[in-house]
């Protein structure tokens, strides 16, 4: 067993997840290593196809078939998750790690009331329910959870079906279900992508509040650098299945070391500076089927040189920071 540092809750090492497709084998997650520490919020940023969601569905053993984990290790509080049986994984998923999905409408069962869905989770996973009156206690906790996530008059609304709630409310309900068993880690996969900006602010504030109250860690998967900037302590930028840069959020955003991070920051329109030109990254992300050894960003990178097409590893570029770029240190400000 790997000895992990006391403050590390989740440790992903060299994770590889593959999907066989008609066109060939796609390595959607290719050698990803990430740590999540107790109590922190880690932001994982990337565009579609970067592997950010697949990385964490691999962590909790929910890779969609025919995908499979091809290598690497995932340790959660010292336990190797990739070696667990499906039943053991289910227990971990319910009690210790929870994940919310981007689309709350399809993630909730439309045929069951909110009560049935939360109580089901509690009955399956909460170990401390009293033997007598289990259901009543589970219901009481379900109501408490709904109140916690800000559903008005939860005693009556708990009997409603998902379609009777708005998008923002459904996202809250999904968070309530996820947090019903007080997990130590919440993985929030694009929790606000489907929501309007004023509702997005409500949901993100809620997650931040709950994190403080419950002392849990949060992995915030998003494509929105602004969201990460405001809510994450540390940041990992993913591109084409690999982590290309990690570090404390402010440090990375203020002086990005990887050209992709820099490109991403340059392509965002900013409200604070309407005169700043938007500089798109030319080209598009590579097909993962044909991804080779070298830097996957090289074909779009303004700084690419011949050496970029050889194998490149993450290198330290400052305190707590790393970047997968051979020219990372040249650009240090």
């Amino acid at each position: 067993m790997i000895e992990t540092a006391p403050e590390t809750l989740l440790s992903i090492k060299e994770l590889r997840t593959c999907f066989p497709t008609r066109a060939g084998l796609v390595t959607a997650v290719d050698g990803v290593s990430l740590d999540v520490r107790a109590g922190e919020c880690l932001g994982v940023v990337g565009e579609s196809g970067s592997g950010k969601s697949v990385t964490f569905s691999s962590v909790i053993g929910l890779v969609r078939r025919p995908g499979y984990i091809a290598g690497g290790s995932v340790t959660f509080r010292g336990r190797e998750l990739t070696a667990l049986s499906p039943a053991e994984l289910r227990a971990v998923r319910g009690r210790e790690i929870a994940m919310t999905m981007q689309d709350a409408l399809t993630a909730l069962n439309p045929a069951l009331t909110i009560e049935e869905q939360i109580v089901e989770v509690l009955l399956a996973h909460a170990v401390d329910l009293p033997r007598a009156g289990r259901k009543a206690e589970a219901r009481r906790r379900a109501v408490d959870m709904l109140r916690l996530v800000g559903i008005a008059s939860p005693e009556t609304r708990i009997g409603d079906y998902p379609h009777q709630f708005s998008g923002g409310m459904r996202q809250r309900i999904m968070i309530a279900i996820a947090l019903a068993c007080r997990p130590m880690l919440l993985i929030a996969d694009e929790p606000t992508t489907a929501l309007d900006v004023t509702i997005q602010a409500q949901v993100l504030e809620l997650i931040a509040d709950l994190r403080r109250q419950l002392g849990m860690s949060v992995v915030l998967i998003t494509h929105d650098l602004g969201v990460v900037a405001e809510y994450a302590d540390r940041l990992a930028v993913m591109y084409a299945g690999q982590v290309v840069e990690t570090g404390p959020t402010r440090a990375v955003l203020d002086s990005p070391r990887h050209p992709y991070t820099r490109g991403l920051l340059g392509s965002i329109p900013r409200l604070s500076d309407l005169d700043a030109p938007i500089r798109p990254i030319e080209g598009q992300a590579p097909e993962l089927v044909s991804a080779g050894e070298g830097c996957r960003f090289a074909s779009r990178c303004p700084m690419a040189v011949g050496a970029c097409y050889a194998r490149i590893d993450l290198v330290d570029v400052g305190p707590g920071r790393a970047a997968r770029c051979i020219r990372a240190l040249e650009t240090a400000a």
């Binding site: 060939g24 097909e287 044909s290 080779g292």
Partner: peptide, 12 residues
């Protein structure tokens, strides 16, 4: 093995 045999992608 991290290099994937580059079969011609159907899309292209």
């Amino acid at each position: 093995m991290s290099a994937i045999p580059a079969s011609p992608a159907l899309r292209a």
